Simulated assay, not measured.
Amino acid sequence: MTDLTAETTRSDVTSIEEAIAAYRTELTGYCYRMLGSSFDAEDAVQETMVRAWKSFDKFEGRSSVRSWLYRIATNVCLTALEGRNRRARPMDLGGPGVPEVSQLGEPRGEATWLQPMPDALVVPEDGDPAELAVARESIRLAFLAALQHLPPKQRAVLILREVLQWSAAEAADLLGTTVAGVNSALQRARATMADLDTDRGDVLAEQDQELLDRYADAFQRYDIEAMVALLHEDAVLSMPPYPLWLTGVEHIRTWWVGPGAGCAGSRLVPVRVNGLPGYCQYRRSAEGDGHDAWAVQVLELREGKIVGFTSFLDVASWFPLFGLPLRLEEGEPDPVPAPRLPEVRPRSLLADPADEIAE
């Protein structure tokens, strides 16, 4: 991993770019945990990179580049969270409903909801297995929803200390506070999190792959009984941006047989999303000549059953995030998901980096 020191010159553009690129994935993960939004996280990292480029002359090398970038990213996120409501899952906004289209409710705006995120954009490809496991668990939807209940600075402390394993002294230095202040904030954050459901679902085990294969086969055949047999008794189904959510096997069965019956004949492309198994669902087009993007499904598993089933329906946003097309033609093979990070720097910087840095 490239690092920078005080001796690195402003004209050493290649080294700066390499350093920024080296931390891009973990910074995106940090901002995503802070903000709960894929696109807000992307914007926050982009802003972090721009600020880093423009203020590099003030970087004296007393801390690592990693710490310096995290300090900038934290300030960007704290500013972004000012005056904002917490993002939520449908289950956070009210009680369960009944499986009728009339109960869907009006779709709520993008800012209401937690958003899905491909693992590949926020979890490093390699590293210590224990650290990678924590990285995946800390982007699960239940954990992210719980984080949203914390005040922004408590949220930053919890992520820095318990997810990224920073010391209290390191976190205090980054946040401009004391070790005692960090420890106090962490204690309050832990107390809040302990009262919330952050553990909905088990860590994916090797034997769960058989369950996922059975689910994908049953869903693509739209075999309702086979699908229902895979559900945990207290399974939950939700469909952002609609506030309706359902719980229990019978309500979910009724939905799949009734309003959800249009999913018959769908194709599923497996993805890794929010540290969980998932599928990008293509539903058969009305003309019957292909399949159109319909939903990103995120599955939560417990005790060898599906306990959570979330379908994110804003496909125009989510499918490109996974590097997938919005349509599959008849007979076309399944595409391979290829999530891609945006450019390390905005094109304005790429065009003439020296001019931008000199501002």
Rank of each mutant, 00 (worst) to 15 (best):
R214V: 13
V236Y: 00
L174T: 15
L144V: 08
V182H: 02
S184F: 00
A189T: 14
P243H: 13
A133Q: 10
I224P: 01
A226F: 11
G201E: 03
D195N: 10
V182Y: 03
V134T: 15
D234G: 01
Q154S: 03
D173M: 09
Q187C: 07
A205E: 10
Q220H: 03
M227S: 06
V157S: 01
A146G: 09
E170V: 01
L211V: 15
A133E: 14
M227I: 15
D128Q: 02
E170H: 04
L237P: 00
I224G: 02
M193W: 02
Y242K: 02
R214E: 13
L196C: 07
V203A: 14
M239A: 12
Q209A: 10
G181A: 09
L144R: 05
L196P: 05
V134N: 08
R140L: 08
A229T: 03
S238R: 01
S138D: 10
L231W: 05
P129V: 00
T178D: 04
A172C: 07
Q209D: 09
D213W: 08
L175F: 11
E206I: 14
Q154K: 04
S167A: 00
S138W: 09
T178I: 11
L230M: 02
M239N: 10
D202E: 12
L231K: 04
Q187F: 09
A133P: 04
L164I: 13
L211P: 09
L175K: 09
A156K: 07
L237I: 08
D217C: 09
D197S: 10
L237S: 01
L212D: 01
K153C: 12
D223Q: 12
L204T: 05
R161D: 06
A216T: 14
L158I: 00
L186Y: 11
N183W: 12
D197R: 13
T192L: 11
T198H: 07
D208Q: 05
A191K: 10
G181I: 06
L132T: 02
L132V: 01
D199S: 15
E206Y: 13
H149S: 10
T198N: 04
L150G: 05
V163I: 12
D217T: 14
V228Q: 07
V134F: 09
A185N: 05
F219G: 02
Q187Y: 12
M227D: 03
H232C: 06
D223N: 15
H232V: 09
L230F: 03
P240G: 03
D197K: 10
R155K: 13
A191C: 05
P243W: 15
L230V: 00
M227R: 13
E210V: 15
A189D: 10
L158D: 14
A226S: 14
D195F: 07
A218R: 11
S184N: 08
E131C: 11
L141P: 01
T178A: 04
R190L: 05
D128I: 12
M239W: 07
